[in-house]
Design a protein around this nucleic acid. Structure first.
Lengths: 131, 131, 131, 131
DNA sequence: GTGGTCTAGACCACG
DNA sequence: GTGGTCTAGACCACG
Protein backbone atom coordinates (compact mmCIF):
# COMPACT_ATOMS: atom_id res chain seq x y z
CA UNK A 1 0.00 0.00 0.00
CA UNK A 2 1.22 3.43 -0.93
CA UNK A 3 0.91 6.14 1.70
CA UNK A 4 0.59 9.53 0.08
CA UNK A 5 0.85 12.53 2.40
CA UNK A 6 0.74 16.24 1.63
CA UNK A 7 2.81 18.06 4.23
CA UNK A 8 1.66 21.42 2.87
CA UNK A 9 -2.00 20.60 3.41
CA UNK A 10 -3.95 22.13 6.27
CA UNK A 11 -5.39 18.66 6.82
CA UNK A 12 -3.47 17.21 9.79
CA UNK A 13 -0.96 14.54 8.88
CA UNK A 14 -2.57 11.99 11.19
CA UNK A 15 -5.93 12.56 9.48
CA UNK A 16 -4.40 12.10 6.06
CA UNK A 17 -2.77 8.92 7.31
CA UNK A 18 -6.11 7.65 8.60
CA UNK A 19 -7.70 8.37 5.22
CA UNK A 20 -4.90 6.70 3.30
CA UNK A 21 -5.20 3.54 5.33
CA UNK A 22 -8.99 3.50 4.99
CA UNK A 23 -8.51 3.94 1.24
CA UNK A 24 -6.11 0.99 1.26
CA UNK A 25 -8.74 -1.13 2.98
CA UNK A 26 -11.45 0.06 0.59
CA UNK A 27 -9.25 -0.93 -2.36
CA UNK A 28 -8.65 -4.30 -0.71
CA UNK A 29 -4.92 -3.69 -0.75
CA UNK A 30 -4.98 -4.68 2.90
CA UNK A 31 -7.44 -7.36 3.93
CA UNK A 32 -9.09 -8.11 7.28
CA UNK A 33 -6.62 -9.87 9.54
CA UNK A 34 -3.58 -8.56 7.71
CA UNK A 35 -0.87 -6.72 9.59
CA UNK A 36 -0.07 -3.06 9.29
CA UNK A 37 3.46 -1.81 9.90
CA UNK A 38 4.41 -1.11 13.50
CA UNK A 39 4.07 2.43 14.73
CA UNK A 40 7.81 2.86 14.72
CA UNK A 41 8.54 1.38 11.32
CA UNK A 42 5.74 3.28 9.60
CA UNK A 43 6.88 6.51 11.24
CA UNK A 44 10.42 5.85 10.04
CA UNK A 45 9.25 4.91 6.53
CA UNK A 46 7.16 8.04 6.11
CA UNK A 47 9.56 10.25 7.95
CA UNK A 48 7.16 11.47 10.60
CA UNK A 49 7.03 11.20 14.35
CA UNK A 50 5.94 8.00 15.99
CA UNK A 51 3.27 9.84 17.97
CA UNK A 52 1.64 11.07 14.79
CA UNK A 53 1.35 7.52 13.50
CA UNK A 54 0.11 6.42 16.89
CA UNK A 55 -2.62 9.05 16.85
CA UNK A 56 -3.79 7.82 13.44
CA UNK A 57 -3.76 4.21 14.63
CA UNK A 58 -5.71 5.10 17.77
CA UNK A 59 -8.39 6.75 15.68
CA UNK A 60 -8.59 3.79 13.32
CA UNK A 61 -8.89 1.51 16.34
CA UNK A 62 -11.60 3.73 17.80
CA UNK A 63 -13.57 3.51 14.56
CA UNK A 64 -13.27 -0.27 14.35
CA UNK A 65 -10.89 -0.47 11.39
CA UNK A 66 -7.98 -2.04 13.21
CA UNK A 67 -7.04 -3.90 16.35
CA UNK A 68 -3.91 -3.07 18.27
CA UNK A 69 -2.18 -5.93 20.05
CA UNK A 70 0.48 -4.73 22.37
CA UNK A 71 2.82 -7.46 21.26
CA UNK A 72 1.74 -8.63 17.91
CA UNK A 73 1.26 -5.18 16.52
CA UNK A 74 -1.54 -3.80 14.40
CA UNK A 75 -3.99 -5.77 12.23
CA UNK A 76 -6.98 -4.86 10.12
CA UNK A 77 -10.11 -5.92 12.02
CA UNK A 78 -10.40 -9.66 11.24
CA UNK A 79 -14.18 -9.48 11.64
CA UNK A 80 -14.31 -6.83 8.93
CA UNK A 81 -15.14 -3.16 9.35
CA UNK A 82 -18.35 -2.40 11.31
CA UNK A 83 -21.14 -1.76 8.82
CA UNK A 84 -22.67 1.70 8.51
CA UNK A 85 -25.26 2.41 11.19
CA UNK A 86 -27.63 5.33 11.61
CA UNK A 87 -24.95 7.35 13.33
CA UNK A 88 -22.59 6.89 10.40
CA UNK A 89 -25.23 7.71 7.81
CA UNK A 90 -26.20 10.90 9.64
CA UNK A 91 -22.58 11.90 9.92
CA UNK A 92 -22.15 11.22 6.21
CA UNK A 93 -25.16 13.38 5.34
CA UNK A 94 -23.86 16.17 7.53
CA UNK A 95 -20.52 16.05 5.75
CA UNK A 96 -22.07 15.90 2.29
CA UNK A 97 -24.50 18.75 3.01
CA UNK A 98 -22.10 21.67 2.43
CA UNK A 99 -20.59 19.95 -0.60
CA UNK A 100 -24.02 19.66 -2.17
CA UNK A 101 -24.87 23.25 -1.21
CA UNK A 102 -21.80 24.69 -2.88
CA UNK A 103 -22.21 22.44 -5.90
CA UNK A 104 -25.78 23.67 -6.38
CA UNK A 105 -24.58 27.28 -6.21
CA UNK A 106 -21.97 26.47 -8.83
CA UNK A 107 -24.51 24.91 -11.16
CA UNK A 108 -23.42 21.31 -10.70
CA UNK A 109 -26.65 19.34 -11.07
CA UNK A 110 -27.57 16.23 -9.10
CA UNK A 111 -26.76 13.87 -11.96
CA UNK A 112 -23.28 15.29 -12.42
CA UNK A 113 -22.64 15.14 -8.69
CA UNK A 114 -23.79 11.55 -8.49
CA UNK A 115 -21.72 10.67 -11.53
CA UNK A 116 -18.63 11.91 -9.70
CA UNK A 117 -19.54 9.69 -6.76
CA UNK A 118 -20.11 6.71 -9.02
CA UNK A 119 -16.73 7.17 -10.69
CA UNK A 120 -15.06 7.36 -7.31
CA UNK A 121 -16.75 4.11 -6.33
CA UNK A 122 -15.56 2.51 -9.55
CA UNK A 123 -12.02 3.78 -9.04
CA UNK A 124 -11.88 1.82 -5.79
CA UNK A 125 -13.14 -1.32 -7.42
CA UNK A 126 -10.60 -1.00 -10.19
CA UNK A 127 -7.76 -0.60 -7.73
CA UNK A 128 -8.13 3.03 -6.81
CA UNK A 129 -5.64 4.83 -9.02
CA UNK A 130 -7.55 8.04 -8.37
CA UNK A 131 -5.65 8.74 -5.20
CA UNK B 1 -32.23 33.10 6.38
CA UNK B 2 -31.59 31.15 9.52
CA UNK B 3 -28.00 30.87 10.66
CA UNK B 4 -27.48 27.69 12.63
CA UNK B 5 -24.17 27.40 14.48
CA UNK B 6 -22.91 24.60 16.69
CA UNK B 7 -20.50 26.06 19.22
CA UNK B 8 -19.60 22.59 20.41
CA UNK B 9 -18.44 21.46 17.00
CA UNK B 10 -14.77 21.18 16.18
CA UNK B 11 -15.61 22.92 12.91
CA UNK B 12 -14.49 26.55 13.30
CA UNK B 13 -17.34 29.04 13.68
CA UNK B 14 -16.31 31.05 10.63
CA UNK B 15 -16.39 27.90 8.48
CA UNK B 16 -19.84 27.03 9.73
CA UNK B 17 -20.95 30.57 8.95
CA UNK B 18 -19.57 30.30 5.42
CA UNK B 19 -21.43 27.03 4.93
CA UNK B 20 -24.68 28.39 6.32
CA UNK B 21 -24.60 31.35 3.95
CA UNK B 22 -23.78 29.12 0.99
CA UNK B 23 -26.68 26.89 2.02
CA UNK B 24 -28.93 29.96 2.11
CA UNK B 25 -27.88 30.85 -1.42
CA UNK B 26 -28.36 27.25 -2.58
CA UNK B 27 -31.88 27.27 -1.16
CA UNK B 28 -32.49 30.61 -2.91
CA UNK B 29 -33.33 32.22 0.38
CA UNK B 30 -30.91 34.94 -0.68
CA UNK B 31 -30.72 35.81 -4.36
CA UNK B 32 -27.92 37.33 -6.44
CA UNK B 33 -27.80 41.08 -5.85
CA UNK B 34 -29.50 40.87 -2.48
CA UNK B 35 -27.85 42.37 0.55
CA UNK B 36 -26.41 40.47 3.46
CA UNK B 37 -26.26 42.02 6.94
CA UNK B 38 -23.20 44.10 7.72
CA UNK B 39 -20.36 42.47 9.60
CA UNK B 40 -21.30 44.41 12.69
CA UNK B 41 -25.02 43.61 12.69
CA UNK B 42 -24.55 39.94 11.85
CA UNK B 43 -21.98 39.55 14.62
CA UNK B 44 -24.36 41.22 17.05
CA UNK B 45 -27.33 39.13 15.89
CA UNK B 46 -25.55 35.81 16.25
CA UNK B 47 -23.53 36.87 19.24
CA UNK B 48 -20.11 36.12 17.82
CA UNK B 49 -16.91 38.04 17.31
CA UNK B 50 -16.62 40.70 14.58
CA UNK B 51 -13.45 39.05 13.32
CA UNK B 52 -15.25 35.76 12.88
CA UNK B 53 -17.90 37.26 10.65
CA UNK B 54 -15.28 39.21 8.77
CA UNK B 55 -13.24 36.08 8.16
CA UNK B 56 -16.30 34.29 6.82
CA UNK B 57 -17.19 37.19 4.50
CA UNK B 58 -13.62 37.40 3.23
CA UNK B 59 -13.69 33.74 2.31
CA UNK B 60 -17.07 34.05 0.61
CA UNK B 61 -15.72 37.01 -1.36
CA UNK B 62 -12.60 35.05 -2.26
CA UNK B 63 -14.75 32.22 -3.58
CA UNK B 64 -16.97 34.54 -5.63
CA UNK B 65 -20.14 34.22 -3.57
CA UNK B 66 -20.35 37.83 -2.46
CA UNK B 67 -19.09 41.30 -3.20
CA UNK B 68 -18.04 43.66 -0.44
CA UNK B 69 -18.53 47.36 -1.20
CA UNK B 70 -17.20 49.97 1.19
CA UNK B 71 -20.43 51.94 0.92
CA UNK B 72 -23.16 49.70 -0.38
CA UNK B 73 -22.32 46.87 1.98
CA UNK B 74 -22.31 43.16 1.30
CA UNK B 75 -24.29 41.65 -1.58
CA UNK B 76 -24.61 38.24 -3.11
CA UNK B 77 -22.71 38.28 -6.39
CA UNK B 78 -25.21 39.92 -8.82
CA UNK B 79 -23.67 38.00 -11.73
CA UNK B 80 -24.45 34.74 -9.95
CA UNK B 81 -21.95 32.38 -8.36
CA UNK B 82 -19.07 31.38 -10.67
CA UNK B 83 -19.91 28.02 -12.22
CA UNK B 84 -17.86 24.97 -11.31
CA UNK B 85 -14.58 24.76 -13.21
CA UNK B 86 -12.02 21.98 -13.35
CA UNK B 87 -10.34 23.24 -10.20
CA UNK B 88 -13.63 23.05 -8.31
CA UNK B 89 -14.48 19.59 -9.61
CA UNK B 90 -11.05 18.28 -8.66
CA UNK B 91 -11.37 19.76 -5.22
CA UNK B 92 -14.82 18.18 -4.90
CA UNK B 93 -13.50 14.78 -5.91
CA UNK B 94 -10.65 15.10 -3.43
CA UNK B 95 -13.12 15.87 -0.67
CA UNK B 96 -15.49 13.07 -1.64
CA UNK B 97 -12.69 10.53 -1.94
CA UNK B 98 -12.30 9.70 1.78
CA UNK B 99 -16.08 9.69 2.23
CA UNK B 100 -16.46 7.13 -0.51
CA UNK B 101 -13.55 5.10 0.85
CA UNK B 102 -15.00 4.84 4.33
CA UNK B 103 -18.47 4.16 2.96
CA UNK B 104 -17.14 1.26 0.90
CA UNK B 105 -15.42 -0.17 3.98
CA UNK B 106 -18.70 0.13 5.87
CA UNK B 107 -20.65 -1.70 3.18
CA UNK B 108 -22.52 1.34 1.85
CA UNK B 109 -22.93 0.61 -1.86
CA UNK B 110 -22.75 3.17 -4.65
CA UNK B 111 -26.51 3.30 -5.12
CA UNK B 112 -27.17 4.01 -1.45
CA UNK B 113 -24.47 6.66 -1.43
CA UNK B 114 -25.88 8.34 -4.52
CA UNK B 115 -29.38 8.14 -3.09
CA UNK B 116 -28.17 10.12 -0.06
CA UNK B 117 -26.73 12.73 -2.41
CA UNK B 118 -29.94 12.89 -4.41
CA UNK B 119 -32.03 13.39 -1.30
CA UNK B 120 -29.73 16.19 -0.21
CA UNK B 121 -30.17 17.85 -3.60
CA UNK B 122 -33.93 17.52 -3.28
CA UNK B 123 -33.90 18.96 0.22
CA UNK B 124 -32.38 22.14 -1.21
CA UNK B 125 -34.94 22.38 -3.96
CA UNK B 126 -37.77 21.94 -1.50
CA UNK B 127 -36.41 24.70 0.68
CA UNK B 128 -33.75 22.83 2.54
CA UNK B 129 -35.51 21.72 5.67
CA UNK B 130 -32.71 19.17 6.13
CA UNK B 131 -30.45 21.78 7.60
CA UNK C 1 -12.55 19.89 43.55
CA UNK C 2 -9.48 18.20 44.91
CA UNK C 3 -7.39 16.23 42.47
CA UNK C 4 -5.54 13.45 44.24
CA UNK C 5 -2.88 11.64 42.22
CA UNK C 6 -0.52 8.85 43.21
CA UNK C 7 2.63 9.15 41.14
CA UNK C 8 3.92 5.84 42.51
CA UNK C 9 0.88 3.94 41.27
CA UNK C 10 1.06 1.70 38.24
CA UNK C 11 -2.25 3.25 37.22
CA UNK C 12 -1.39 5.82 34.52
CA UNK C 13 -1.63 9.41 35.68
CA UNK C 14 -4.11 10.30 32.96
CA UNK C 15 -6.39 7.45 34.08
CA UNK C 16 -6.23 8.59 37.67
CA UNK C 17 -7.06 12.10 36.51
CA UNK C 18 -10.06 10.80 34.57
CA UNK C 19 -11.27 8.95 37.65
CA UNK C 20 -10.78 11.93 39.93
CA UNK C 21 -12.83 14.15 37.65
CA UNK C 22 -15.58 11.54 37.33
CA UNK C 23 -15.59 11.29 41.13
CA UNK C 24 -15.93 15.07 41.32
CA UNK C 25 -18.94 14.91 39.01
CA UNK C 26 -20.44 12.00 40.98
CA UNK C 27 -20.09 14.03 44.19
CA UNK C 28 -21.71 16.98 42.44
CA UNK C 29 -18.67 19.11 43.18
CA UNK C 30 -18.77 20.04 39.50
CA UNK C 31 -22.17 20.36 37.88
CA UNK C 32 -23.26 19.99 34.24
CA UNK C 33 -22.36 23.14 32.33
CA UNK C 34 -19.63 24.16 34.75
CA UNK C 35 -16.14 24.84 33.51
CA UNK C 36 -13.09 22.74 34.19
CA UNK C 37 -9.65 24.33 34.29
CA UNK C 38 -7.88 24.72 30.97
CA UNK C 39 -5.45 22.03 29.94
CA UNK C 40 -2.53 24.29 30.66
CA UNK C 41 -3.63 25.63 34.00
CA UNK C 42 -4.58 22.21 35.34
CA UNK C 43 -1.26 20.79 34.16
CA UNK C 44 0.55 23.62 35.92
CA UNK C 45 -1.52 23.23 39.09
CA UNK C 46 -0.92 19.50 39.36
CA UNK C 47 2.63 19.72 38.13
CA UNK C 48 2.24 17.36 35.18
CA UNK C 49 2.63 17.72 31.47
CA UNK C 50 -0.06 19.39 29.43
CA UNK C 51 -0.31 16.36 27.16
CA UNK C 52 -1.18 14.14 30.08
CA UNK C 53 -4.05 16.41 31.05
CA UNK C 54 -5.10 16.57 27.42
CA UNK C 55 -5.20 12.77 27.18
CA UNK C 56 -7.46 12.63 30.23
CA UNK C 57 -9.74 15.33 28.81
CA UNK C 58 -9.92 13.55 25.46
CA UNK C 59 -11.05 10.37 27.17
CA UNK C 60 -13.64 12.21 29.23
CA UNK C 61 -14.90 13.84 26.06
CA UNK C 62 -15.02 10.48 24.31
CA UNK C 63 -17.11 9.06 27.13
CA UNK C 64 -19.56 11.96 27.12
CA UNK C 65 -18.54 13.55 30.43
CA UNK C 66 -17.27 16.81 29.04
CA UNK C 67 -17.35 19.04 25.99
CA UNK C 68 -14.24 20.73 24.70
CA UNK C 69 -14.69 24.10 23.06
CA UNK C 70 -11.56 25.23 21.32
CA UNK C 71 -12.01 28.74 22.59
CA UNK C 72 -14.14 28.61 25.65
CA UNK C 73 -12.35 25.67 27.18
CA UNK C 74 -13.74 22.61 28.86
CA UNK C 75 -17.19 22.18 30.44
CA UNK C 76 -19.04 19.31 32.05
CA UNK C 77 -21.64 18.05 29.57
CA UNK C 78 -24.56 20.49 30.01
CA UNK C 79 -27.02 17.78 28.97
CA UNK C 80 -25.76 15.58 31.80
CA UNK C 81 -23.73 12.40 31.50
CA UNK C 82 -25.13 9.78 29.08
CA UNK C 83 -27.08 7.21 31.07
CA UNK C 84 -25.81 3.64 31.34
CA UNK C 85 -26.68 1.52 28.32
CA UNK C 86 -26.25 -2.18 27.69
CA UNK C 87 -22.66 -1.67 26.61
CA UNK C 88 -21.84 0.08 29.87
CA UNK C 89 -23.57 -2.51 32.01
CA UNK C 90 -21.73 -5.34 30.26
CA UNK C 91 -18.45 -3.55 30.70
CA UNK C 92 -19.27 -3.03 34.37
CA UNK C 93 -20.04 -6.72 34.85
CA UNK C 94 -16.82 -7.68 33.13
CA UNK C 95 -14.86 -5.42 35.45
CA UNK C 96 -16.66 -6.62 38.57
CA UNK C 97 -16.27 -10.29 37.63
CA UNK C 98 -12.66 -10.79 38.82
CA UNK C 99 -13.33 -8.73 41.94
CA UNK C 100 -16.21 -11.00 42.86
CA UNK C 101 -14.17 -14.09 42.03
CA UNK C 102 -11.29 -13.14 44.30
CA UNK C 103 -13.68 -12.02 47.04
CA UNK C 104 -15.41 -15.40 46.97
CA UNK C 105 -12.05 -17.15 47.26
CA UNK C 106 -11.23 -14.95 50.24
CA UNK C 107 -14.50 -15.76 52.01
CA UNK C 108 -16.12 -12.36 51.45
CA UNK C 109 -19.81 -13.20 51.13
CA UNK C 110 -22.27 -11.46 48.83
CA UNK C 111 -23.82 -9.40 51.61
CA UNK C 112 -20.48 -8.05 52.78
CA UNK C 113 -19.49 -7.25 49.20
CA UNK C 114 -22.74 -5.44 48.56
CA UNK C 115 -22.42 -3.59 51.85
CA UNK C 116 -19.07 -2.23 50.67
CA UNK C 117 -20.74 -1.05 47.46
CA UNK C 118 -23.58 0.54 49.38
CA UNK C 119 -21.18 2.42 51.63
CA UNK C 120 -19.31 3.68 48.61
CA UNK C 121 -22.56 4.94 47.13
CA UNK C 122 -23.37 6.68 50.39
CA UNK C 123 -19.92 8.22 50.58
CA UNK C 124 -20.62 9.98 47.29
CA UNK C 125 -23.96 11.25 48.46
CA UNK C 126 -22.43 12.58 51.66
CA UNK C 127 -19.74 14.45 49.76
CA UNK C 128 -17.35 11.67 49.05
CA UNK C 129 -14.74 11.95 51.79
CA UNK C 130 -13.74 8.37 50.96
CA UNK C 131 -11.48 9.49 48.18
CA UNK D 1 -11.21 -25.73 33.94
CA UNK D 2 -11.53 -23.68 30.84
CA UNK D 3 -9.02 -20.90 30.34
CA UNK D 4 -10.51 -18.12 28.28
CA UNK D 5 -8.08 -15.48 27.02
CA UNK D 6 -8.74 -12.45 24.88
CA UNK D 7 -5.61 -11.65 22.91
CA UNK D 8 -7.17 -8.47 21.66
CA UNK D 9 -7.72 -7.07 25.13
CA UNK D 10 -5.48 -4.39 26.56
CA UNK D 11 -5.43 -6.46 29.74
CA UNK D 12 -2.07 -8.28 29.82
CA UNK D 13 -2.29 -12.01 29.12
CA UNK D 14 -0.71 -12.96 32.44
CA UNK D 15 -3.31 -10.89 34.31
CA UNK D 16 -6.13 -12.56 32.42
CA UNK D 17 -4.60 -15.93 33.24
CA UNK D 18 -4.42 -15.04 36.92
CA UNK D 19 -8.09 -14.00 36.85
CA UNK D 20 -9.17 -17.14 35.01
CA UNK D 21 -7.48 -19.36 37.56
CA UNK D 22 -8.95 -17.42 40.46
CA UNK D 23 -12.36 -17.74 38.79
CA UNK D 24 -11.81 -21.50 38.53
CA UNK D 25 -11.07 -21.65 42.25
CA UNK D 26 -14.10 -19.47 43.04
CA UNK D 27 -16.30 -21.82 41.03
CA UNK D 28 -14.73 -24.77 42.89
CA UNK D 29 -13.63 -26.27 39.60
CA UNK D 30 -10.23 -26.67 41.27
CA UNK D 31 -10.15 -27.40 44.96
CA UNK D 32 -7.49 -26.73 47.60
CA UNK D 33 -4.71 -29.29 47.30
CA UNK D 34 -5.47 -30.07 43.68
CA UNK D 35 -2.74 -29.78 41.10
CA UNK D 36 -2.55 -27.22 38.34
CA UNK D 37 -0.77 -27.99 35.08
CA UNK D 38 2.95 -27.33 34.99
CA UNK D 39 4.15 -24.04 33.53
CA UNK D 40 5.36 -25.87 30.47
CA UNK D 41 2.24 -27.86 29.75
CA UNK D 42 -0.13 -24.97 30.41
CA UNK D 43 1.88 -22.72 28.14
CA UNK D 44 1.79 -25.39 25.43
CA UNK D 45 -1.95 -26.01 25.90
CA UNK D 46 -2.93 -22.38 25.65
CA UNK D 47 -0.25 -21.53 23.13
CA UNK D 48 1.37 -18.71 25.05
CA UNK D 49 4.86 -17.92 26.25
CA UNK D 50 6.43 -19.83 29.17
CA UNK D 51 7.29 -16.55 30.84
CA UNK D 52 3.68 -15.46 30.73
CA UNK D 53 2.46 -18.53 32.57
CA UNK D 54 5.32 -18.25 35.01
CA UNK D 55 4.49 -14.64 35.74
CA UNK D 56 0.87 -15.56 36.40
CA UNK D 57 1.84 -18.43 38.71
CA UNK D 58 4.28 -16.21 40.62
CA UNK D 59 1.54 -13.68 41.23
CA UNK D 60 -0.92 -16.37 42.35
CA UNK D 61 1.74 -17.70 44.73
CA UNK D 62 2.43 -14.21 45.99
CA UNK D 63 -1.27 -13.75 46.74
CA UNK D 64 -1.58 -17.11 48.54
CA UNK D 65 -3.66 -18.92 45.92
CA UNK D 66 -1.14 -21.57 45.03
CA UNK D 67 2.03 -23.26 46.23
CA UNK D 68 4.86 -24.01 43.88
CA UNK D 69 6.96 -27.05 44.78
CA UNK D 70 10.11 -27.85 42.86
CA UNK D 71 9.16 -31.51 42.67
CA UNK D 72 5.48 -31.88 43.34
CA UNK D 73 4.50 -29.11 40.96
CA UNK D 74 1.83 -26.48 41.39
CA UNK D 75 -1.10 -26.99 43.76
CA UNK D 76 -3.97 -24.84 44.96
CA UNK D 77 -3.17 -23.79 48.53
CA UNK D 78 -4.20 -26.86 50.60
CA UNK D 79 -4.96 -24.62 53.61
CA UNK D 80 -7.45 -22.70 51.46
CA UNK D 81 -7.06 -19.16 50.19
CA UNK D 82 -6.12 -16.62 52.89
CA UNK D 83 -9.28 -14.88 54.04
CA UNK D 84 -9.81 -11.21 53.28
CA UNK D 85 -7.98 -8.94 55.71
CA UNK D 86 -8.12 -5.18 56.11
CA UNK D 87 -5.52 -4.72 53.39
CA UNK D 88 -7.63 -6.71 50.94
CA UNK D 89 -10.83 -4.89 51.84
CA UNK D 90 -9.17 -1.51 51.41
CA UNK D 91 -7.78 -2.56 48.08
CA UNK D 92 -11.23 -3.77 47.04
CA UNK D 93 -12.83 -0.48 48.03
CA UNK D 94 -10.19 1.43 46.11
CA UNK D 95 -10.91 -0.63 43.02
CA UNK D 96 -14.68 -0.33 43.37
CA UNK D 97 -14.52 3.42 43.98
CA UNK D 98 -14.17 4.56 40.34
CA UNK D 99 -16.75 1.98 39.22
CA UNK D 100 -19.27 3.37 41.67
CA UNK D 101 -18.39 6.95 40.71
CA UNK D 102 -18.98 6.37 37.01
CA UNK D 103 -22.13 4.37 37.70
CA UNK D 104 -23.55 7.23 39.75
CA UNK D 105 -22.80 9.67 36.92
CA UNK D 106 -24.57 7.33 34.52
CA UNK D 107 -27.67 7.10 36.70
CA UNK D 108 -27.12 3.53 37.90
CA UNK D 109 -28.55 3.51 41.42
CA UNK D 110 -27.15 1.58 44.37
CA UNK D 111 -29.78 -1.14 44.17
CA UNK D 112 -29.11 -1.84 40.51
CA UNK D 113 -25.37 -1.88 41.15
CA UNK D 114 -25.74 -4.29 44.04
CA UNK D 115 -28.09 -6.47 42.03
CA UNK D 116 -25.36 -6.84 39.40
CA UNK D 117 -22.94 -7.88 42.13
CA UNK D 118 -25.44 -10.36 43.56
CA UNK D 119 -26.01 -11.94 40.18
CA UNK D 120 -22.27 -12.29 39.70
CA UNK D 121 -22.04 -14.04 43.07
CA UNK D 122 -24.84 -16.37 42.05
CA UNK D 123 -23.22 -17.13 38.72
CA UNK D 124 -20.19 -18.47 40.61
CA UNK D 125 -22.32 -20.62 42.87
CA UNK D 126 -24.19 -22.06 39.92
CA UNK D 127 -20.94 -22.98 38.23
CA UNK D 128 -20.00 -19.66 36.77
CA UNK D 129 -21.40 -19.83 33.27
CA UNK D 130 -21.11 -16.06 33.15
CA UNK D 131 -17.44 -16.26 32.34
C1' DG E 1 10.60 -5.58 19.25
C1' DT E 2 6.05 -3.99 20.34
C1' DG E 3 2.83 -0.41 21.99
C1' DG E 4 1.91 2.72 26.31
C1' DT E 5 3.06 6.58 28.97
C1' DC E 6 5.17 10.85 30.06
C1' DT E 7 7.92 14.95 29.43
C1' DA E 8 9.52 19.30 27.22
C1' DG E 9 9.05 22.39 23.94
C1' DA E 10 7.38 24.49 19.63
C1' DC E 11 4.16 26.55 16.32
C1' DC E 12 -0.55 27.29 14.77
C1' DA E 13 -5.69 28.45 14.20
C1' DC E 14 -9.38 30.53 16.37
C1' DG E 15 -11.60 34.40 18.21
C1' DG F 1 -5.62 32.60 26.09
C1' DT F 2 -7.51 28.40 24.33
C1' DG F 3 -7.02 23.72 22.39
C1' DG F 4 -4.73 21.13 18.24
C1' DT F 5 -0.79 19.34 16.12
C1' DC F 6 3.81 17.80 15.72
C1' DT F 7 8.47 16.69 17.10
C1' DA F 8 12.22 14.53 19.87
C1' DG F 9 13.47 11.74 23.23
C1' DA F 10 12.97 8.77 27.30
C1' DC F 11 11.56 4.81 30.14
C1' DC F 12 8.49 0.91 30.88
C1' DA F 13 5.61 -3.51 30.60
C1' DC F 14 4.83 -7.37 27.96
C1' DG F 15 6.25 -11.57 26.03
Amino acid sequence: MLINLDFESSEPIYTQLVQEIIAGIAKKEILPGERLPSVRSLAADIGINLHTVNKAYQQLKQDGFILIHRQRGVVVNPDGIPAADEVYMNQLKKTLHPLVAESICRAVDADTFMQVCKELYQSFERGGKDE
